[in-house]
Design a protein around this nucleic acid. Sequence first.
DNA 1: TTCTTTGATGTAATCCTTTTCATAAATCAT
DNA 2: ATGATTTATGAAAAGGATTACATCAAAGAA
Lengths: 337, 337
Amino acid sequence: MTPMTRPTIDEVARLAGVSIATVSRCLHTPDIVAAKTRDRVLGAVRQTGYTLNAAAQSLRQRRSNAVLVVVPDIGNTFFSEILGGIEAEASAAGLTMLIGDTGRMKPREDAYVRYLLNGRADGALLLADPQAAWFDIPTLNALGIPPIVTISEVGPDSGPVTVSIDNEGAAHVAVSHLIAQGHRRIAHVAGPESNILTAQRVAGYRRAVAEAGLTPERELEFPGDFGLAAGRAAFDRFRALSDRPSALFFANDEMAMGFLSTAYAAGVRVPRDVSIIGFDDIHFAQSCIPALTTIRQPRAEMGATAMRLLLQIIAGEAPASVRLPYDLVIRGSTAPV
Amino acid sequence: MTPMTRPTIDEVARLAGVSIATVSRCLHTPDIVAAKTRDRVLGAVRQTGYTLNAAAQSLRQRRSNAVLVVVPDIGNTFFSEILGGIEAEASAAGLTMLIGDTGRMKPREDAYVRYLLNGRADGALLLADPQAAWFDIPTLNALGIPPIVTISEVGPDSGPVTVSIDNEGAAHVAVSHLIAQGHRRIAHVAGPESNILTAQRVAGYRRAVAEAGLTPERELEFPGDFGLAAGRAAFDRFRALSDRPSALFFANDEMAMGFLSTAYAAGVRVPRDVSIIGFDDIHFAQSCIPALTTIRQPRAEMGATAMRLLLQIIAGEAPASVRLPYDLVIRGSTAPV
DNA sequence: TTCTTTGATGTAATCCTTTTCATAAATCAT
DNA sequence: ATGATTTATGAAAAGGATTACATCAAAGAA
């Protein structure tokens, strides 16, 4: 509507009979102003309903008090739970959280780089796949761009500070769990080809298979894309095999859930006929039928940790990257052969 | 790190041998500047790597080119899918999307009101429950605060412009579906007491029951809170009843999923032993076992519509509130008695 | 008493754009 | 060729805060 001009610091100053400098001081460093004056000013602030103009402040201070979080898909549970952790930490530090959803589209990604360059944010948290030609973090750092911390999808180009888990190790643990239950023929449903996590989890799968002395078979490595539909497709592929595996390791929970429902509909029972294990431990993994055995990633903590690292960088420190622990969560979807 | 001073418009102007006014014009209204000059300026922009300072722009233009979206819980799938719709529309309009997660906590909510007052956003989209004493929209409007559109949780205090579905009607449709299948004893698992949606859906349930000439029974209205655990608790309550209902209507899908898995573990089969119907049609509703019959809310469209309405208000128009259509999605969790 | 220090406040520069208004040059009509 | 338009550019005034520096009064030291 009518942008009905909001009160400025001048009006407060006039009403309180002081200079604008004093008003500013009352708001930011109240201790250095005389108690009597302060009360008068604060009274004037209340009376006028004054709130400071964020743009003016940020122009003068040369910082925005905001962080940009770049997400490839905000509708995805996995990411949104990380956001919770970031938000908590950011708002505790007085920072606004800006969210950019790229939908994995290049032009949108570019738009968010511009945000950073425009000074709209003091730093960025990246949940996006750096593989996706986002931008070259080392180069940007050299340009004097605000600092960036990469979360979860961490590869060689992710820049100096990252937060992740040991995906290769976790995948190894998952597959080893299946092997410990006597499974000898184990398939893997991978993530999207271009994603750095895919390679890491495939590597863990292969190592576990190799260490157990099983024969690695390429036909047991199914393609996927982290979506429900890929899980369903994996079931079709599974059923088409003449020599079916007795267990599958999925690169994420969502695909495992897609498999689960399709298998059920087709009369294949989990874990009686086939064991499955997921990755991530998303919220709904506990309420699958049967509940999903999976690798838990500490999502909220990953977000919070990354935010803390970013704050440290902004403060001029040079923190090291962090590896967070993961857990194997054993539920009902895996059983001995 | 070192905030290595970024190039300003002055440097571009100097390099191109023009005034800063011309540089600004080249960036915003290229047509009114001579082609020759324009090329020279644009060249200088590229050469310096100039990007405009968002704070300065926003100070001068008296608008922030950002929208604030207030969410009660960002980890919740239901909300995050609405965000997708908002984001698409916002970025198309050149607006930044700021997300505020209140965690349903008053101090955090207050903080976001302040954002608006600080001019950090040109308008707000509210997914929060206005019941939660957020703030009084009519009052704030009188204060000349940026415009606000409320989505989904719409009640009498939601202000002049809202986007929602007919919750009472949808609940009525859901329950009627059960009745049409011959169910005569139907329970309802409600949402959190304070939530406006709870009342609306309960009302639809009661009306359907009454219209079918069934006896309304208070013990068939179970309390809930939209969480998985509430669904599990509902199962316990269900099983404790001497005269068990043959069907349940859940105020949302998540609770239905909680019920489903607990029922399965206890040997109660859906829909053989009991039919259930959810609400929302969240992503995973299709991959439950059995797939969940539910009411589909057009989440992405709700977000997009709300964003469009907000843009209209900002542009000075006075659009009316919107009611979007819902669908009954029949899947495998409901069957004749 | 006089000089120093401390404490409280004010003055004014600065942050970087956008935009109004004025000016100068170029085009056109007559 | 002269005056009337039109077009392209520049000068300068906002826009609303923060903060280095200056000032002034009061308090303390000698």
